[in-house]
Write a protein that binds this DNA or RNA. Structure first.
Lengths: 202, 202
DNA sequence: GTCTATACCAAGATAGAC
DNA sequence: GTCTATCTTGGTATAGAC
């Protein structure tokens, strides 16, 4: 039996250079499907095609991986909303928000699911960071509602509650929408905007 | 050193006769706080004040415990809504539903949290049972909306979506309401009813 | 009905070779 | 950068004594 030396039967990993992103993708999907606590590092490694030990070249521990995924999601959300050109009136701004929120969240159901479901699995320190980002987003929405009340186009007894109510309602889309389903994305947007608009209007 | 015999230093358990309910209460609280997968049988036992092995006198396994808690919650929800005297008109029925849903859910935040968050930790068989119960509840709400559309008091492009949107909005109350907070339960009910009413009205 | 003890397995994380 | 091997801890569930 001869040998090609160390080049043969190479089991030392692919060194592909994209292991980092692949780990994040696999973790995102698995955490969303089964929950953070139910997913093992070995399972993530298997999905990526490496051994469990190799994961620790990319994350110091499992908690940091979860936190990083959640933080990325929240900062992307804020950046994307910031990038939407602001309309003048509150009504039009609210309409833009409704459409933006639905589309952004439907495009990344796994990240959204994790961002809401795994808050309790964050350390206190990490939780505080995510909470601040979430609050920033909510404050942006409340600003629109307040503007609308001042302009007299909205009638809202409590803008903070209305903010949370609208966001909760829109988040519900992710639980039932399927792209092959009965309604197109535009129709979904229209139906929800009608409800939101009526709910907040004067 | 003398001894009182086997009556002394009794470590053989309390035999209190209420261990069963205590296990369910502890499991409900812990599952809600930390998630089903993150809670161990040892932890539940510790809360109850027994050893882990003793739990298996009350449940065949951890999965059955989760399922039993979720099923109890859903059947209680359906029974409680059935017990509400039905009003004549759709508008009044919807108002009764809004108040009922908010109050029922605020009274059992842990059970509600579990019912929504732990669906993915049920076996396929158990999941199907819970889903059917949830569907029954939703169909009751959709019935009201359909009646309102027929009577001309509601204008709703899609009663199924509106049902899910209303429920999602109302469920949001559980994420922020605190009894010591700024608003009384009656005020919360009023604020949400105003939004729901406007959202579905013609 | 509960205890103690344990079988059995899988988890997160690390060490050192390559 | 990844592998293999392993340390340590803690999980579910069961057996048999009391």
């Amino acid at each position: 039996m001869f040998s090609y030396g160390r080049r043969m039967a190479r089991t030392q990993g692919s060194h592909s250079g994209i292991t980092g992103p692949k780990i994040r993708e696999a973790a995102l999907r698995l955490f969303a499907q089964q929950g953070y606590a139910a997913v093992s590092m070995r399972q993530i490694a298997k999905e990526v095609g490496v051994q469990a030990g190799a994961l620790y070249n990319y994350t110091p521990d499992k908690q940091s991986l979860l936190f990083s995924l959640m933080k990325s999601h929240m900062t992307e959300l804020l950046a994307a909303w910031d990038a939407v050109p602001p309309a003048a009136g509150a009504m039009e701004r609210m309409r833009a928000f409704t459409g933006f929120h639905i589309r952004f969240h439907l495009e990344r159901p796994d990240a959204v699911f994790i961002a809401y479901m795994e808050l309790r699995n964050l350390t206190d320190e990490n939780f505080a960071v995510i909470e601040t980002l979430r609050r920033d987003y909510e404050n942006g929405v409340e600003g629109i509602l307040k503007q609308g009340v001042e302009q007299g186009v909205f009638r809202i007894p409590d803008t903070k509650i209305a903010t949370l109510a609208v966001i909760a309602m829109l988040n519900g889309v992710n639980t039932w929408y399927r792209s092959e389903g009965r309604l197109t994305l535009n129709e979904v947007e229209r139906v929800y905007w009608e409800m939101v608009q009526k709910a907040v209007s004067a």
